[in-house]
Simulated scan of single mutants.
Amino acid sequence: MIADNDITPILQEQVAAGIAAQESLNIVGGGSKAFYGNPANGKLLSTASHTGVIAYEPSELCITARSGTRLQDIEALLAANGQMLAFEPPCFGPESTIGGAVAAGLSGPGRAWRGAARDHVLGVRLVTGYGKTAAFGGQVMKNVAGYDISRLLSGSMGTLGLILEVSLKVLPRPATELTLTLEMPDQEAYELTTTMRRSTFPLSATCYFDGCLYLRLSGEPSHVFASHRKIGGDPLNNPDQFWMALRNQTHEFFQQYDRPLWRLSFPPATSVVSRLEGNSLIEWGGSQRWIYTNIPTNLIRNIAQKGNGHATLYRGSLPGVNPFHPLPGNLLAAQQRLKRAMDPHGIFNPGRMYKDW
C-alpha cells in the first residue's frame, strides 16, 4: 500500500518562509544520499511525508508520483504489472524516495542501453525559487512541452527547486534474462563488450570485476539463448541478486572504506585506462569505472578529461576537493545563470554541488 498524503501547501509555505527570511533550505527526501556531493547546509525541508501515486495506467507506460513516495513501493507496483523503471535507480535503503532518485540523477547497470535517469523524466511539478508552483513537461511520452527543464532537474541535487511530483516513463520487464560469466583479462573484456555493443546481441548490462566479465542479456527467449550459444560462458546463478547488489551498491566491491572511491564516466567505447592504479570495477561496457585509489586528484581528473569524461569523488572526502568534476568556463557560466533564474534568492541546497553556488 502506498500512502496518499499531499502536503504541497506546507512545503510551499516553508519555501516562502525561507525566501522571506533569506534562509537556506536543505531539501531532502529520505536522506539516503547524504554521502553524495558536498555536505548539506540550511534548515531541513523534508519531502518524505509527501507521498502517493497520482496517476498510473500501465498501458500508457507512465507513472506520476509525489516526490516523497518510496522508491521500493513504486517498483513493487510496477513489478506487479510486469513493468519497471528501466534506468534502474539505486535504492540505498527503504527510505529512498522517487524525488531523491530524480534529484541525484544516478542510474544503474542498464544505463548504457536503456538510457539515463534524465531520459526517463517526462515531467515535473515543483516549488520554484519564487515560492510558486510550476509544472514542466507532461505525463505521456509524446508530450515534450518544457521537456528540457524536466531533464535539467535530474542530477541537480535539489539546487534548482523543490520537486513536488515527477512523471516517469516506464517499460515492460524483459520476457527473458540471462547473465553469463567469462573469465578473461580486462583488455579482452573491453574488446568483447565493444564488439557486442556494435552488434545485435541483446545486451542490457555488463560488469567487469576481479578478472571476470558479467554479461546480462535481455529480450525474447529465442534471441537470448541464440546469443548465449554464440558468446559462450557460464550462466550465473542468482543473477537478479548480483545485479541488484551492483545497482544498490551492496556488492562486496562497495564495502571498502580504506581509500576514496572515485567514479569515472566516459563516452562509449573508451579503451581501458591503464594508468588508474587501484581496486576497480567497470560497468556500462567500459563507460563507467569505479576505483579506490590515492592517485592525486589533478592526475585522476586529467586522465578523465583526456578521455572526454569526468571524475567524481563519490565516497570519502579530500581537503579542498569538490566531489564533482570542475565545469569548463562556458558550461559553468550557463549553470550559474540557470541557478539564478530558477533560484534567485539562492536558498535551495546552496553548495551541495559546487561550493560557490
Results as ranks from 00 to 15, higher is better:
Ile2Tyr: 08
Ala3Trp: 01
Asp4Ala: 12
Gln14Cys: 11
Ala20Lys: 13
Asn26Tyr: 12
Gly31Thr: 02
Lys33Trp: 14
Ala34Cys: 05
Ala40Ser: 14
Leu44Pro: 03
Leu45Gln: 01
Thr47Lys: 02
Ala48His: 11
His50Asn: 14
Gly52Trp: 07
Tyr56Trp: 13
Pro58Gly: 09
Ser59Asp: 14
Leu61Tyr: 13
Cys62Trp: 00
Arg66Tyr: 10
Arg70Pro: 04
Gln72Phe: 02
Gln72Tyr: 09
Asp73Arg: 00
Glu75Pro: 03
Ala76Met: 11
Leu78His: 06
Ala79Thr: 14
Asn81Val: 00
Gly82Glu: 05
Gln83Val: 08
Met84Trp: 12
Pro94His: 06
Glu95Gln: 15
Thr97Glu: 13
Val102Ser: 05
Gly108Leu: 03
Gly108Glu: 09
Pro109Ser: 12
Gly110Glu: 02
Ala112Glu: 05
Val121Trp: 02
Leu122Cys: 11
Gly123Cys: 07
Gly123Thr: 01
Val124Pro: 00
Thr128Lys: 05
Gly131Thr: 00
Gly131Ser: 08
Thr133Asp: 04
Ala134Lys: 13
Gly138Asn: 07
Gln139Thr: 13
Val140Glu: 01
Val140Pro: 02
Met141Ala: 14
Val144Phe: 12
Ile149Arg: 07
Ser154Val: 03
Ser156Cys: 11
Gly158Trp: 01
Ile163Trp: 04
Leu171Phe: 08
Pro172Asp: 04
Pro174Gly: 01
Leu192Ile: 02
Thr193Trp: 03
Ser199His: 10
Ser199Ile: 02
Thr200His: 15
Pro202Phe: 03
Pro202Val: 13
Thr206Ala: 07
Cys207Val: 05
Asp210Cys: 05
Gly211Trp: 06
Cys212Gln: 12
Leu213Lys: 00
Leu217Val: 06
Ser218Cys: 07
Gly219Asp: 04
Gly219Ile: 03
Ile231Trp: 06
Gly233Ile: 06
Gly233Asp: 04
Pro235Tyr: 11
Asn238Phe: 14
Asn238Glu: 15
Gln241Ser: 13
Met244Thr: 15
His251Asp: 15
Gln256Phe: 08
Pro260Trp: 04
Leu261Trp: 11
Ser271Lys: 14
Val272Asp: 06
Val272Thr: 10
Val273Gln: 15
Ser274Asn: 11
Gly278Pro: 06
Gly278Tyr: 06
Leu281Phe: 03
Ile282Leu: 10
Glu283Lys: 02
Trp284Lys: 05
Gly286Ile: 07
Ser287Gly: 15
Ser287Thr: 07
Tyr292Gly: 07
Asn294Phe: 11
Thr297Lys: 11
Ala304Leu: 09
Gln305Ser: 12
Asn308Val: 04
Gly309Cys: 05
Leu318Met: 10
Val321Leu: 09
Asn322Ala: 14
Asn322Lys: 00
Phe324His: 10
Pro326Glu: 07
Pro328Ser: 11
Asn330Pro: 02
Arg337Ile: 09
Arg340Lys: 12
Ile347Leu: 10
Ile347Thr: 00
Tyr354Pro: 01
Asp356Glu: 15
